[in-house]
Write a protein that binds this DNA or RNA. Structure first.
Length: 513
DNA sequence: CGGCCGTACTG
DNA sequence: CAGTACG
DNA sequence: GCCG
């Protein structure tokens, strides 16, 4: 992002409050800065804006410093967060003789009050006009008749309305330093997972929705009535939650887990390319171990790969490894075709410390109509040549040329690994996107999955339709099937998509539901 | 009671 | 087409 | 399992 070598790469903080510190540390990760303890030898120190040079120096002397470090006001980070890019730090450096006067009383950004402002903002009934910077056609005025209430959740209150839109809330605001109902959530998560692998999709989703409702309940639950007042929690789930509170366990979960088939289905579900039907059949055929599958089961091509790398694929990828993988792909892509825009999405973009796989989106931003096949195929070939890519799972650029099927999006799912010995094989997705779909694709591939589904449900309720290709307005549905596909809205940025849906913008790290 | 996101690839 | 996958 |  910022290649300027004069910028700090390692920083530490002095006398910054806990809440602000958290935000700053998160921002540092985003901007590629390492945060260290300022007792270690370090030349860049961010100090609270209230401190002047003298008091800062005093505080530092007491912690035995040899060389004199460069002091930077934390306003530098605040402003960088506001503009979503790392700004030059020079004007924020604190010098010995200059009086520390202009320290911001304005405090326009200070994202420590972000949660307050957003909940406050959403508690005001917002005008439901589409704030579109783009097309304001006559057809759109009809859509203003939409009478959907986006119910605000009062801070401290329990949600009273049914139907909540988790996409309208920051995930961070719901998980301030560990949820008090962690135990309950953990059990319900397990239930959801087991229902999923036993092919009960509906129940699995019901549990997930209940979990989301619980997560936003920031105090420990006291009464049974309180539980039942939660959205997506009614008789059956309330009983289970109450049982967990009372007994610290859940009989139905224990019974579920001790079923002989469930454990095996769970094991088999870890094979990439095997879903509920396949794992069910494997169990019915008497297979119980991965060796049984290797020796006796009929496997598709992708399942063979999934089995070969079973342990690797089910291991988390540390964040810094994703960064290194990203660098290799970017460098190689630049050698093939310069001028590509690439963004690593998924949980990496949501700033998670570890990721399940690597999703890299690629496009030409200049909107020229390049033949995407002429880019993705050579890129893949080159990555194979340097033995970075080891296996293909889905390779559209290959199959499309044989089927003549040329959609503008191109999908590659495959397997990569770093060249260093001992590196694990990792799942990697390379997706080529036409420039006009960039924002919707970015939104989709950044997730989370729950966040996407919530946003799509909201769009659907507004007679719109949201996918990785675009946001459509005036969609007419008859049951599930679309009668009219509606008209595509102009979505140049992720922000614009939030605006159309009348949602406050969420940065990637706040979409982690 | 039906739907629970909307889409793309495999075989 | 059913099954699996992606977030 | 919950919602409309």
């Amino acid at each position: 992002m910022t290649d300027d070598i004069s910028l700090p790469t390692t920083v530490s903080f002095l006398r910054v409050g806990k809440r602000r510190l958290e935000i700053f540390q998160k921002a540092c990760i985003r901007f590629g800065l390492s945060v260290v303890n300022h007792t270690s030898h370090n030349s860049f120190i961010l100090i609270d804006d209230e401190l002047d040079f003298i008091s800062a120096s005093k505080a530092l002397k007491s912690s035995s410093f040899s060389s004199s470090p460069i002091l930077i006001r934390t306003q530098w980070l605040s402003d960088s967060i506001k503009q979503n890019k790392l700004l030059p730090h020079h004007s924020y450096i604190l010098h010995a003789n200059l009086p520390q006067s202009v320290s911001s009383v304005t405090e326009t950004c200070n994202s420590s009050n972000r949660n307050e402002t957003t909940t406050q903002g959403s508690s005001i009934k917002r005008e439901r006009s589409i704030s579109s910077s783009a097309s304001d056609t006559d057809e759109e005025s009809n859509s203003k008749k939409r009478n959907i209430e986006i119910q605000p959740i009062q801070p401290g209150d329990l949600p009273k309305t049914t139907g909540i839109w988790l996409c309208s809330e920051a995930s961070s605001s719901t998980s301030i330093n560990g949820n008090p109902n962690e135990k309950i959530i953990e059990k319900l998560k397990e239930m959801s997972k087991l229902y999923l692998i036993t092919n009960d999709k509906g129940r699995s989703i019901a549990y997930q929705k209940a979990i989301e409702a619980l997560k936003r309940c920031t105090h420990p639950i006291r009464s049974y009535e309180e539980i039942k007042a939660l959205p997506y929690v009614k008789q059956s789930l309330a009983d289970k939650i109450w049982e967990i509170i009372r007994t610290n366990g859940l009989v139905k979960l224990s019974a579920f887990q001790s079923r002989d088939d469930v454990a095996t289905l769970g094991l088999f579900a870890g094979v990439w390319g095997a879903g509920t039907e396949t794992t069910k059949q494997w169990f019915a055929q008497g297979f119980r171990t991965l060796d049984d599958l290797r020796n006796r089961a009929r496997l598709t091509r992708t399942q063979q790969i999934g089995l070969k790398y079973y342990d690797d694929f089910n291991a988390r990828i540390p964040r810094d490894e994703v960064t290194r993988i990203e660098t290799i792909v970017k460098q190689t892509a630049n050698e093939v075709v310069p001028g590509l825009v690439m963004e690593t999405c998924g949980s990496y973009r949501r700033l998670k410390p570890s990721c399940g796989d690597i999703d890299i989106l690629i496009t030409f931003k200049d909107g020229k109509r390049h033949l995407h096949e002429s880019v993705l195929s050579p890129l893949i070939d080159k990555l194979k040549a340097i033995e970075f890519l080891t296996d293909d799972l889905i390779n559209h650029s290959e199959t499309s040329s044989s089927t003549g099927n040329t959609s503008e999006q191109m999908t590659y799912f495959g397997v990569c690994r770093l060249l260093e010995p001992g590196s694990l094989h990792r799942r990697i997705d390379l997706i080529f996107i036409p420039a006009n779909e960039w924002a919707c694709s970015l939104l989709y591939f950044t997730g989370s999955a729950m966040f996407n589904r919530s946003m799509r449900r909201l769009a659907r309720r507004l007679n719109m339709s949201l996918s990785q290709h675009g946001l459509y307005n005036g969609v007419v549905r008859k049951g599930v099937e679309k009668i009219h596909t509606g008209q595509a809205l102009h979505t140049p940025t992720e922000e614009s998509i939030f605006q159309y849906l009348n949602l406050p913008y969420r940065p990637p790290e706040d979409r982690d539901h």
